[in-house]
Every structure is written in C-alpha cells, then in structure tokens.
C-alpha cells in the first residue's frame, strides 16, 4: 500500500510490477538526460558571442538532431513493446477469481469452487478498529494463494468501475455486459490494497479492494472452511 509521502511507485508484489518499475526507472533516466542536455544548452545561450550570426544552413547538425531523437525513442519503444506483450500474456491459471463492481462495493466469486461468493464493503471510519486503514479496509478480503497464476475476470452490474491493485500492476475496467480478463502472480504474502479507479458515482472513493496473499495450505484451509 501507499504510505506517507510516497512519491514513487508502491513496492512490487508480482514479477510484472517489477518489470513495470524497471521500465519506469529506465524511461525516467532518459527523460532526465534529455532535460539536463536541453537545460544546459538553454543556459549557455545567455553566454554566447553570436558566433554563428551569419549561418544559413548546417546539414550535419540537422542530420544529428533528426536521427539522434529517433534512436533515443527506439530505446524507449522497444522495452515498452516487450512489456506490453508480457502484460498481455495469459498463462494457465491455477485459480480464477471473478469480480463484479456495484454501486458501491465489489462482489467476488471463486469460479473454480461451488458457492464461494461474497460482497466486500469498505469498513466505515466510525466502525474501524484502531489498527485499521481508513477508507482502505474492507469487511471481506479476497484471499488468494501466493506463487500461483491467478486469473481475474472483471465486470460490473451497473456503471463502469475499475479493479486496481497497484502493488500487483493490475488495473482492469469493469464494464456492464463485458468480461475483461487479466492475470497476475503474487510472489510474497501480505495485504495489497487498491481502490476503484474509474469515477463511478458518489461513493467511488469508498469501494476499496483488499487482497490477502497467503501460502497455498492456508488458502486451501480458507476455501474448505468457506465451502461447507
């Protein structure tokens, strides 16, 4: 989750988010290099002596400042495309989770099992425990096994919602009448928080998502205790 004064991305909990962070840092470094270069050139304009006042054309410099940006763009475009296709890949899932957005809560369904369905509401601030997270904690968490491929199917029952967990690098729109899918792989246990990311009405800010990532044997225990 995001903590105080966190300006960067959240710590990753999935291999895809790690890749997204690498790409973010890579692109940012290129931006910094360009900004420093352009800043230096602009700054130095104040101190020139009009050396090239009668210059009419310079083929060489024209070539350089046309081709060089193209090459720099390639260095951003190719890793970006690689990441795009990595994110799109659907591996064979262990567990399928279906999430339906409502005004204003999420309901979940474990499609592989019979009768595991529940609604997940935000805990209002006046009912919150002292160690709870305001506007983030929910009454029923989504329990998922770590180190397993998980497929998430997202849809909505009324207006458009968006199911988002930044630490896992997942953001999928839930659109009524459509079923969107993506997959993720959680590589550590923990609680991962997210919020609806599509303006969906008055209580848009009050329908958070909490994923509880647990080892597989705990997941099996949880399933068997909820299945009966």
């Amino acid at each position: 989750m995001s903590t105080w004064a966190n300006l960067g991305l959240q710590d990753s909990a999935s291999p895809l988010m790690e890749q997204l962070i690498f790409f973010h840092d890579h692109a940012l470094l290129i931006l910094v290099m360009i900004t420093v270069l352009v800043g230096y050139l602009m700054f130095m304009l104040f101190f020139n002596n009009y050396v090239n006042r009668f210059l009419l054309h310079g083929q060489l410099i024209e070539m350089i400042w046309t081709i060089l940006p193209a090459i720099i763009l390639l260095f951003i475009a190719l890793p970006s495309l690689r990441l795009l296709y990595l994110l799109d890949e659907i591996n064979e899932p262990s567990v399928t989770l279906k999430s339906i957005g409502h005004q204003w809560y999420w309901s979940y369904e474990y499609s592989d099992f019979n009768n595991i369905e529940f609604d997940s509401y935000m805990i209002p601030t006046n009912e919150l425990m002292t160690d709870g997270f305001r506007l983030l904690d929910v009454d029923n968490r989504v329990v998922l096994p770590m180190n397993s491929q998980i497929r998430i199917l997202v849809t909505a029952a009324d207006v458009i919602h968006s199911w988002t967990v930044p630490a896992l690098g997942v953001k999928v729109d839930g659109t009524p009448g459509r079923l969107n899918q993506t997959n993720f792989f959680i590589n550590r246990p923990g609680l991962f928080y997210g919020q609806c990311s599509e303006i969906c009405g008055a209580n848009h800010s009050f329908m958070p998502i909490v994923i509880e990532s647990v080892p597989v044997n705990y997941f099996i225990k949880w399933i068997s205790s909820n299945n009966s």
């Binding site: 064979e92 262990s94 567990v95 499609s111 592989d112 099992f113 019979n114 096994p145 180190n147 397993s148 491929q149 597989v216 997941f219 099996i220 225990k221 399933i223 068997s224 299945n227």
Partner: peptide, 16 residues
C-alpha cells in the same frame, strides 16, 4: 501448480 482439483479433493473440497 499447487492448487489442483486432485489436491483439493484430499481436503474434501470439490474444485472444478
């Protein structure tokens, strides 16, 4: 794959 229908059967849970 840790979560499989066979594995879940051992714990008395039917998985599709």
């Amino acid at each position: 794959q840790p979560v499989t229908p066979e594995e879940m059967k051992k714990y008395g849970v039917s998985m599709k």
